[in-house]
Design a protein around this nucleic acid. Structure first.
Length: 223
DNA sequence: CCATTAAGATACT
DNA sequence: AGTATCTTAATGG
């Protein structure tokens, strides 16, 4: 029991101790539970009851939306030090999730029960700022997704997707399939294959089975 | 070696 | 840009 708390404190110290005051850290250690979410696991689905809010310690969560036909589209990622502020408001209103969250890679998070969120909002200034900041940050993220969808052609969307993914995975070798990319940017596999082939012919990347190797020269170009 | 499946190719809308 | 279909290639048992 006590050992768990030591681990929790250690995990929090990496990022959150910079932004949260000591009393709040202690409370998080008291009520939070550390969870490991392996890559590919569904963390939360659309319509799920929200009982806990995650503080991401390490890894990344892909946030997705579903259309009327059950087709998915990926919106943005949650990373180390972040939380889902959208789910925060959902929690307060005791609503159901409007998003789907899947672990993009092995992820660790501290889960806080809903009741505490409200309480801490009044009690801790740092918590208040953290929630407002991340809400703002999520809004910016959403606006970017909308911009991408509305104003960019498919090729540019694909490029942006690759750049984002490289940032999240911290590697320019992406272990993914054309099929997965297709669902994420909401198009068909053949189209992704075609576009990637074009980029390969332009010398921007190399294609292997289950693997895309992006050249750093192209990466600089796309930034 | 074979089954599975990712990815390439072609043709049509 | 997207769909349908076929072929080829990689991978894991």
């Amino acid at each position: 029991m006590n050992e768990n708390k030591i681990v929790l404190r250690e995990k929090l110290s990496e990022y959150f101790s910079e932004i949260f005051e000591e009393d709040l850290i202690n409370e998080i250690i008291e009520v939070g539970n550390l969870n490991f979410i392996p890559k590919g696991e569904l963390l939360i689905d659309i319509g799920d009851d929200l009982t806990h809010i995650p503080l991401i310690i390490d890894g990344a969560i892909k946030i997705m939306l579903e259309d009327q036909n059950g087709e998915e589209i990926s919106l943005y990622y949650l990373e180390k030090g972040e939380t889902c502020a959208i789910s925060f408001v959902n929690c307060i209103q005791r609503n159901y999730s409007i998003f789907r969250g899947i672990a993009e890679k092995d992820t660790e998070g501290i889960f806080i029960p809903v009741e505490k969120l409200d309480e801490w909002l009044v009690k801790y200034k740092s918590w208040r700022h953290y929630i407002i900041d991340s809400y703002h940050y999520r809004l910016i993220g959403l606006v970017h997704s909308i911009e991408n969808l509305a104003f960019l052609n498919l090729e540019d969307r694909l490029i942006k997707y690759l750049v984002d993914k490289i940032k999240i995975m911290r590697s320019n070798i992406l272990k993914t399939t054309h099929e997965e990319i297709a669902t994420d940017i909401h198009t068909s596999r053949t189209v992704v294959s075609r576009l990637l082939k074009d980029l390969e012919n332009e010398g921007k990347l190399k294609l292997r089975r289950n693997r895309i190797i992006i050249h750093s020269s192209a990466l600089n170009l796309w930034k």
